[in-house]
Nucleic acid binder design. Structure first.
Length: 460
RNA sequence: GUGAUUGUAGCUCAGCUGGUUAGAGCAUCAGAUUGUGGUUCUGAGGGUCGCCGGUUCGAACCCGGUCAGUCACCCCA
């Protein structure tokens, strides 16, 4: 038997890890609920048609495809071979694969809305926490199976939604202890106005891909890349002016207004950012949101049409993006149901986990499962212990008894490893006096508690 | 898809220019310690050095291949 193994880029989550992950999930979910979002789940797999062509050329390559069943049916050999030839040429064919693992939660959601738009009440606000799969090469902060935590609202054009999303990000990050999160905002309308200024809307993808890298590779390399992507000197210098915009949010707005003065789309984008910026900073409490304008922000997914967001981890952990989102005006249009505008955000839970771990931000209580371990000191003793144990459980306190009579040394070690804060010792002496010795392992202190007061004591 | 790098005990790693029975720390188990753990001391178990092949009198070490992991680029959470 070969050594057991799991596929590249996937992980098992042990008990402590699951506890910590659930802490993150629950924190974010509770904020979603607070803002009126409802839960939704969709299948792990979708029809390949549903997913293909929605994430750009690169995205399509990263979709995990599922091999059809029944390919070994002799009657279909000839067809299967012909279809496979097509696959070798880089084409997709239903003969070989017609289903795939979902790549994100947004497109399946759009599919759900398109399928059920007759029954849904709009605006429809849903949140969804499920794994997604990408056939990417794993590396730091990057997995082939990872969880997304999305909230979207469809059926509303109002910018109030964007403002709410800013506050959701803020509130969730604060609850998680990530006070110095970094939330950026931009608008696809501004990027589109810039592209028009530089030779046409078809250049938008090239431009956004290049300027998105400004942080990482610097201005000179960005200019180089723009030139490689077919932009001329005049166009590049416009972009250079655009990239040189800096200062506070207000200063950036002033500068962009001058640059895009002649563009209707641009003006619209600027107004929207201004609105979201002022509304979300006014309404926020207990502290101000860290929302800053970043005109280099592009977002890879090309279905965004308005405001876009990106949340970054504090710079010192070097993990990068921990969330993102934005407005998409016609996502369900891809599925034949036009005029359903939407906006949404996503939290990258796996990366948030890494950030919290690195910054030691998990509360200690997260690691705790069992609250008290009852020592097993013999057959008679354990009968009393078991009776008390059940009483304690009746009060909703997680407790367990050591599985066999053993040296105290061993039982202490078990409690310590399982992070159990209290041990309850009941021996012959204690039974006689109807008290138990309760030891607080962290403090190392021990006290005598009468049997009938044990549950109350532990529930504190 | 492109490039780099690593693979030795359950874990983290050492192992000199190839030389005989491959080491350490942590962890595990037992004892010092018959109802009070985390400290200390003593002892024990555990490895066909990722796999296949080559060079050599001799390979954990050199060479080729292969598999797996990690990191970076592309792209992205």
């Amino acid at each position: 038997m070969a050594k057991p193994n799991i596929p590249q880029g996937t992980r098992d989550f042990g008990p402590e890890v699951v506890r910590k992950r659930q802490y993150i999930f629950n924190t974010i979910k509770s904020v979603f609920e607070l803002y009126g979002f409802q839960p939704l789940e969709t299948p792990a797999m979708e029809n390949l048609d549903t997913l293909m062509g929605k994430y750009g050329e690169e995205g399509d390559k990263l979709i995990f495809k599922i091999l059809n069943n029944g390919l070994d049916n002799p009657a279909k050999h000839q067809q299967a071979k012909e279809d496979f030839e097509k696959v070798l040429q880089g084409k997709n064919t239903k003969g070989i694969t017609e289903r795939a693992l979902k790549y994100d939660l947004t497109i399946p959601f759009a599919r759900y809305v398109a399928m059920n738009h007759g029954q849904l009440t709009f605006p429809f606000k849903r949140y969804q926490v499920q794994p997604v799969w990408r056939a990417d090469r794993p590396q730091k902060g990057r997995y082939r199976e990872f969880y997304q935590c999305d909230a979207d609202v469809v059926g509303s054009n109002s910018l109030i939604n964007e403002v709410e999303f800013v506050n959701i990000y803020h509130q969730a990050f604060i609850k998680l202890g990530l006070t110095n999160y970094d939330l950026r905002i931009n608008s696809r309308k501004i990027l589109s106005a810039l592209s028009e200024l530089c030779g046409g809307a078809d250049k938008m993808t090239d431009i956004t891909i290049a300027i998105d890298k400004l942080d990482k590779i610097g201005l000179d390399k960005v200019k180089e890349e723009l030139s490689q992507r077919g932009l001329n000197g005049d166009q590049i210098s416009i972009i250079e002016n655009y990239l040189n915009i800096n200062g506070s949010n207000e200063e950036k707005l002033t500068q962009i207004k001058t640059l895009l003065a002649n563009s209707g789309t641009g003006k619209k984008g600027i107004e929207e950012i201004e609105y979201v910026l002022t509304s979300s900073t006014q309404n926020s409490n207990p502290q101000t949101v860290n929302l800053s304008i970043d005109f280099t922000l592009a977002r890879g997914l090309n279905y965004y049409t308005g405001i876009i967001f990106e949340a970054k981890a504090p710079a010192e952990v070097k993990i990068g993006s921990i969330g993102g989102g934005g407005r998409y005006d016609d996502l369900t249009g891809l599925f034949g149901v036009p005029n359903v505008p939407g906006a949404g955000i996503s939290f990258g839970v796996d990366r948030i986990y890494d950030v919290l771990e690195e910054l030691k931000l998990f509360p200690e209580t997260v690691a705790q499962g069992t609250k008290a371990l009852f020592f097993n000191l013999g057959l008679e003793e354990s009968k009393t212990a078991f009776r008390l144990l059940q009483q304690v459980r009746q009060e909703g306190i997680a407790a367990e008894i050591f599985h066999e009579q053993a040296k105290m040394d061993k039982q202490f070690k078990y409690a310590e490893k399982k992070n159990i804060p209290y041990v309850v010792i009941i021996g012959s002496k204690e039974i006689e006096e109807k008290i138990c010795a309760v030891k607080d392992l962290q403090k190392g202190e021990q006290q005598k508690i009468p049997f009938e007061e044990l549950a109350t004591f532990l529930s504190k």
